[in-house]
């Protein structure tokens, strides 16, 4: 997917100035509430018209204020999953799912495929008004997919849901992207939610895009790093817990480093790795560590770096306390 955005939109007292150029197939838009993330999504979908600028998706110009080009939302082929599922209350679940299906757009995936992927079979005959929040969101996701969009936008698809329901949706989002090869943009104020789908990020604050890069590129930038650390920056680690493989998230300050496999520590899990980068962020230093399976981020003090003699290329052992491991899947 190639998305090029350079737009300006004034809405009441709020101004959005966004400039994005992205070639990735999955993109996370991250920023605090009220930063303009949703407005950005509405602009891309065609639900809001910018005052000026330019918008292009895979070579199609969707908006160009200079040449007076404006493609209305129903002709853009961009699907949206909203925070509030927005199912049509006068239709059954099945009819909602089929709402965007047309004869021309069969292909990539069938109705049966989506029903199976999102585990919707038991819901088909039920009224959408009787579905739970998580079920509604799954139906909304299926409905958007069955319209066969070329790009799927997801605007805070799990923010209204509690932690348990979130776990019903997030794995599906990753699955959709992985199995259907559909370009996705996920908008969230919750960084870990985004990181589970993609590490390619756009940071939005006060109506401005204040950073766009991979997670690794962004952690080297002081402002972006601070913003992300406040919002739950974490790296993902594969561990074996009670003989079972588990994928888990750990925050940078929850990883301890040692230069040898220390015995008799209370931290239950450990992994060897190699330091690939040390990034000085004032009081602490952010350590990027490559293990066999993943790249980890750990906070460490300058004193410890000196005492342990750590430098780029040094082998280290990473220790995780059991309580710090936030397991997923």
């Amino acid at each position: 997917m190639h998305l090029a955005v350079d737009i300006s939109l004034r809405q009441g007292g709020f101004t959005l100035n966004a400039s994005i150029d992205c070639w990735s197939s999955a993109l996370g838009v991250f920023g605090p509430s009220g930063s303009g993330k949703s407005t950005l999504i509405r602009v891309i979908a065609g639900l809001a018209k910018p005052d000026s600028g330019y918008l292009e998706l895979d070579g199609d110009v969707l908006f160009d204020s200079e040449n007076r080009i404006w493609v209305p939302p129903h002709l853009r082929g961009i699907g949206v999953v909203f925070q509030d599922a927005r199912l049509f209350p006068h239709w059954s679940t099945e009819k909602n799912l089929r709402a965007g299906m047309t004869l021309e757009t069969t292909g990539m995936f069938s109705f049966e495929h989506i029903v199976k992927l999102l585990e919707l079979q038991p819901l088909l005959k039920r009224s959408v008004n009787d579905l739970s929040g998580g079920e509604k969101q799954r139906v909304a996701l299926g409905r958007a997919l069955l319209a066969h969009p070329r790009l799927l936008l997801m605007d805070e698809p799990v923010s209204g849901l509690d932690a348990k329901l979130k776990e019903q949706i997030l794995p599906f989002l990753a699955r959709v992207h992985r199995e259907l090869h559909l370009p996705c943009i996920l908008v969230s104020h919750d960084l870990p939610d985004i990181l589970r789908l993609t590490d390619r990020l756009v940071l939005v604050r006060d109506g401005m895009v204040c950073g766009q890069n991979t997670l690794e590129g962004l952690v080297t930038q002081r402002g972006a790093f601070d913003m992300m650390r406040r919002s739950g920056l974490m790296s993902f680690v594969s561990l074996e817990v009670d003989g079972e493989p588990v994928r888990a998230g750990v925050r940078p300050d929850e990883i301890m480093l040692a230069n040898r496999p220390v015995e008799g520590l209370s931290a239950r899990y450990r992994k060897p790795g190699v330091i690939v980068r040390l990034i000085d962020h004032g009081p602490t230093i952010l350590c990027l560590i490559d293990t066999d399976e993943e790249r980890l981020m750990a906070d460490i003090t300058p004193d410890a770096v000196r005492e342990l003699g750590l430098k780029e290329g040094s082998p280290v052992w990473c220790f995780f306390k059991a309580g710090a491991v936030h397991s997923f899947d």
Partner: peptide, 8 residues
């Protein structure tokens, strides 16, 4: 709006 992004 939801209908319009479904192609209506």
């Amino acid at each position: 709006e939801a209908a319009s992004v479904l192609g209506y």
